[in-house]
Amino acid sequence: MLIFLQMIETPQEKSKFEILYQQYRNLMFSIARQILKNDQDAEDAVHQAFVKIAENIKKIDEPISPQTKSYVVTIAENKAIDIYRKHQRHMTIALTEEVHGLEVNTEGIGDLAGCILKLPGRYREMILLRYHHGYSIQEIAKMMGISVSAANKLNQRAKNRLRDLCREEGLI
């Protein structure tokens, strides 16, 4: 809201935002739709994702690039899972973190990378934002709309789950 209004201030950033919108909205919708199975909820997820993107517009260098695509996909999935969680109010937070996001084919890729892709969506997003995009815990907390301490806990849980998965797969 107020934070959002403060975010996009220069014509370059405005242009960047419009390019992002035109380029990725359909992809983001498809991702959200796959998780939420409902058009209206998926559109809400896309809108919330764009609000988050607007807030973090300064962090995007090239609107059309693999890095940016990966980033908007992660944010769209994250917002879709948020909405999914909202619809599952009877579940505890610990359980809702288990929501699986996008289905990804793990054939032919490395063992550890395969385990990352098998993680529940929320955990996978944390690992990718932290280790692929290189964001700090503080930055991720802002993107996910959670407190820094909650993001720290999520990061720890994601790594613990990854370790467990690796053990199950006999990697460690």
């Binding site: 992809l27 559109e43 289905e103 550890l112 692929h132 790594k159």
Partner: peptide, 28 residues
Amino acid sequence: MLQAAAHEADKALQDSLFDLAKSEHIFS
């Protein structure tokens, strides 16, 4: 190791989105 695997996982994730990227939705 995590960093290297995260890069690889992200690439696989992007590749899997190829079909999704082609779909066109008429927004409300």
